[in-house]
C-alpha cells in the first residue's frame, strides 16, 4: 500500500507491505541507515527513534502505523553538514562510543530525556540509559558525556 511518512521534517512516499517494520522502512526504503537494528524484539534500543517527540522502538512498529506521526532519527540531530550538536559533541569529547552501533539509539533516548530533564544526576542518567544496551563502553563515558551536557 502507498504511505506517506514524515521523517525528520520531510515527507516520504513509498509503496510498502503492511508488515514492513518501521526500522526497515527508515533504513532500506529511505536510506536513513543511522538507525540501527540489534535485536528486532525491543530490547537492545539500537533502533530507538522519536515518535512524536517520545523515544520508541522502530523495530516494534509497522511503517504503515507511522503515517500521520512525526518521526525523528539520528540524522536529524546535527545542526548542519559536518557539524555535531551539543550531545554529539559531548559524546566525542568523552569517548562515549567505541563501535558506535548503539550510539544512534542512545542519542535519541537521551535527546528526549534531556529535553525533559536538562540537569540530571548520575543516577538519573543511568536509569535513563538502562533501556539501551551498549556492549563496548561499559557506559561510564556515556554517563560522563551526558553529565557534561547537563553541566553546560
Amino acid at each position: 500500500m502507498k504511505i506517506t511518512l514524515r521523517v525528520n521534517g520531510t515527507d516520504h512516499v513509498r509503496e510498502v507491505e503492511p508488515r514492513l517494520l518501521l526500522s526497515d522502512f527508515l533504513r532500506h526504503e529511505i536510506g536513513l541507515t543511522g538507525t540501527h537494528v540489534g535485536c528486532e524484539h525491543g530490547v537492545c534500543g539500537a533502533c530507538t527513534i522519536l515518535w512524536d517527540g517520545e523515544p520508541a522502538r522502530a523495530c516494534l512498529a509497522f511503517a504503515v502505523q507511522a503515517e500521520g506521526h512525526e518521526i525523528r532519527t539520528v540524522e536529524s540531530l546535527s545542526p548542519g553538514p559536518g557539524r555535531l550538536d551539543a550531545l554529539q559533541q559531548a559524546f566525542q569529547d568523552s569517548h562515549a562510543l567505541q563501535c558506535g552501533y548503539c550510539t544512534p539509539g542512545i542519542l535519541m533516548t537521551l535527546t528526549a530525556f534531556l529535553a525533559e530533564n536538562p540537569h540530571p544526576d548520575e543516577a538519573a542518567v543511568r536509569e535513563a540509559l538502562s533501556g539501551n544496551l551498549c556492549r563496548c563502553t561499559g557506559y561510564q563515558h556515556i554517563v560522563d558525556a551526558v553529565l557534561r551536557v547537563a553541566a553546560a
Binding site: H28, G31, T35, E75, Q88, F91, H95, G100
Partner: peptide
C-alpha cells in the same frame, strides 16, 4: 595523550557505513 577520536563524527551523525547499510 587522551585525544578524542577521528572516527567519531561520522558515527555520531549516523553516516558511518556498516555492512547492513550496503544497498545495491
Amino acid at each position: 595523550r587522551p585525544l578524542t577520536r577521528n572516527e567519531d563524527p561520522r558515527l555520531l551523525r549516523g553516516e558511518a557505513l556498516f555492512v547492513d547499510d550496503v544497498e545495491l
